[in-house]
């Protein structure tokens, strides 16, 4: 018994050493992965946490139109979707003097319909209801989460709008893409 102990300890020491080596080598890349690919200039996604990305805000100043989407006429107003970003509000009470008066930020937005005091739209896969009875203070009144499951994976900004290389993306539980920026990225996905 007294002889056993040092032998055992030596064995364990060796085992520990081998284990450490194995642990270290586990980080080695035998196949070059995505991030070790050659770098190219392209579009990189900007992620935001779901909670902040889904905030709906009305800003009573004009915003530039980036990607024109669906249009909707209601009373003296015209609404124009800016695909993936929100909805422009245009005052059309005097058509000769029609102008943008505000913008509703709704990330992941594509669709619009209105009845009575309520505007219905989508934010990613959610159905959103906005009270527009007081145009200066539009506010969200309800959200039906994930009612369009297909849109959770297939929303407007899942790819950049322009063609070229972009960093490949996938579904994330806790965050969504709210925009794209130019950067040096690993050569991966390409949009025609």
């Amino acid at each position: 018994m007294p002889f056993d102990l040092p032998i055992k300890t030596a064995c364990m020491k060796n085992l520990l050493f081998i284990f450490c080596i194995l642990l270290l080598t586990s980080c080695w890349k035998f196949n070059p992965g995505y991030h070790s690919r050659p770098k190219v200039w392209g579009n990189k996604p900007v992620y935001a946490a779901v909670d902040s990305a889904k905030k709906i805000l009305y800003d009573p100043v004009m915003h530039p139109l980036i990607n024109a989407g669906n249009i909707y006429a209601f009373k003296d107003a015209i609404f124009q979707v800016d695909v993936g970003r929100g909805i422009h509000v245009i005052d059309n009470s005097v058509p000769a003097n029609a102008h943008r008066v505000g913008f509703i930020t709704i990330n992941g937005c594509q669709q619009i319909s209105i009845q009575g005091s309520y505007l219905y739209t989508n934010s990613y896969s959610d159905l959103v209801t906005i009270d527009i009875s007081d145009p200066e203070h539009m506010k969200i009144v309800s959200r039906l989460a994930n009612t369009f499951p297909e849109m959770a994976y297939d929303y407007p900004l899942i790819q950049p709008e322009e063609s070229g290389y972009y960093e490949c993306t996938g579904y994330r539980e806790d965050s969504v893409i709210v925009g794209w920026v130019k950067d040096s990225i690993p050569q991966g996905c390409y949009k025609n």
Binding site: I71, F74, S113, G116
Partner: peptide, 13 residues
Amino acid sequence: QTGKSGSITRFTI
């Protein structure tokens, strides 16, 4: 009162 949509739409009331 509803408004009027363009012909390209996926929402309608």
